[in-house]
C-alpha cells in the first residue's frame, strides 16, 4: 500500500502517450481521463496502468454497437488512493472484430470479456475460457446486444394507440 506515491490522471496519460504516441487523451472531469487507444496497443496500455497505478480496480469492459460493423470497447479503471478514473476507448471494425485479451493482467476482466464476446461478437484473442457466460447455448452466435438484433415488439400493437416509430433497420440477418 505504500509502494508508490500518488499519480494524477494527466501524469498517467502523459506517461502512456510517451510510450505509445498513437494514444490520444481527453479529459472527462476532475481527475477523470479518457484515452483513445488503437486496438493493437491495448495490452501495452493496460500493462502500463497495472504498473503505474498500484491499486487499479478493473471496473468493467463493455462494447457499444455503432452500427455498420463499427464497434467501440470501453475499459474503465478506478484508483481509490488517487481518486482517479481512467476510461479507455478502442474503436473496432469488421463483422467479427478481434482484440487482445487483457484478463491475464487483470483477472477481473475475464467475465466482462466473455460477456462482450457473446453479446457483441468481439473476439478476445488468447482468452483462457471463451465459453458463453449469460446466454443459453441456442443463442450462440446471435449477439443480442448488436443493434441489428430485433426484439419482439408485437405487444405494442395491442395497446390500441399508434405504436411509436420502430428503430430503422440497417440490414443484417435479423429474424
Amino acid at each position: 500500500m505504500s509502494e508508490s506515491t500518488g499519480i494524477t490522471a494527466s501524469t498517467l496519460a502523459r506517461q502512456i502517450i510517451n510510450r505509445h504516441p498513437q494514444v490520444s487523451s481527453r479529459p472527462l472531469g476532475t481527475n477523470e481521463i479518457e484515452l483513445v487507444v488503437p486496438s493493437d496497443k491495448i495490452r501495452g496500455v493496460v500493462t502500463m496502468i497495472d504498473e503505474n497505478v498500484h491499486d487499479a480496480l478493473p471496473e468493467s469492459i463493455f462494447g457499444i454497437d455503432l452500427e455498420n460493423d463499427k464497434y467501440e470497447l470501453i475499459y474503465i479503471f478506478w484508483s481509490h488512493s488517487n481518486r482517479m478514473l481512467v476510461q479507455l476507448r478502442v474503436s473496432l471494425e469488421g463483422e467479427r472484430p478481434e482484440i487482445d485479451s487483457t484478463c491475464d493482467i487483470f483477472p477481473g476482466f475475464e467475465w466482462h470479456e466473455r460477456e462482450t464476446r457473446e453479446m457483441f461478437g468481439i473476439e478476445f484473442k488468447n482468452h483462457p475460457d471463451p465459453r458463453l457466460l449469460l446466454l443459453p447455448d441456442e443463442l450462440e452466435g446471435v449477439f443480442p446486444l448488436r443493434k441489428r438484433f430485433q426484439t419482439d415488439q408485437s405487444r405494442l400493437d395491442e395497446t390500441g394507440i399508434a405504436p411509436p416509430k420502430a428503430r430503422p433497420k440497417t440490414g443484417g440477418d435479423d429474424e
Binding site: L57, E59, H80, L85, G108
Partner: peptide, 28 residues
C-alpha cells in the same frame, strides 16, 4: 489480500474489510 481483491475487481465491504477505506461516498 487487498492486491488480490483489487485484481478481481472487488469493491465495497470485501475490500474495506482488508483495511482500505475505499468508499465512493467519500472518494467521489
Amino acid at each position: 489480500t487487498v492486491k488480490q481483491g483489487l485484481k478481481w475487481g472487488l469493491s465495497g465491504p470485501p475490500i474495506k474489510a482488508c483495511g482500505v477505506p475505499m468508499d465512493l461516498r467519500k472518494d467521489a
